[in-house]
Design a protein around this nucleic acid. Sequence first.
DNA 1: GTGTGGCAGTTAG
DNA 2: CTAACTGCCACAC
Length: 182
Amino acid sequence: MTPLFPSQPVASIYFFTMQLGSYPLYIMGKNDKIIHLTFNRQHHEQLCSRYPHSPTPATTQVDSLAQIVQHAINAETNTTFPADSPFIAAGSKFQQQVWQQISLIPRRLTLTYGQLANRIGNPKAYRAVGQACNRNPLGILIPCHRVVAKNGLGGFAGGGEVKRWLLTGENKNKKFILRTLE
DNA sequence: GTGTGGCAGTTAG
DNA sequence: CTAACTGCCACAC
């Protein structure tokens, strides 16, 4: 499996899962910050096994992070680029440029991989853009589901079904509700 | 609609 | 260092 994640361990971290629509959303927190967010179960399990973490996060911490996601998922635009995650810092220059550009895409707008490659001044790197999207450590907060193929949906680490559901929901101006698991 | 060749960045070996 | 991947694209049928 590809080393998608930084090799250095991160202290004081915890994991929890929430539910968005019918899809599980895996969140990795450190203190009061979200450092990783994905729909991809495999990525989540890799992280769980790689890093020592608290088995039972404090409720206040979980609630606080959940609120951040709940707000971000319905926001018209992303206010700030969440650069404080160590997973962002561990990305290459190219990946950081891609993630930065994605975070500028507002609700109900999509860019193609090619258009995004143009925006970072590397028009032929559309394929590498796809790879960088795949390794986005902060799904939703960095809305990589808004990057699509020129003729079609394109891929999604959490599965095409989730990507399509997110995009149609946004187009209908749906308010997404994040729920806790029982 | 399908096939094919090339693309750039990243990682594995 | 090569080789082998991709969340792609253009262009040809």
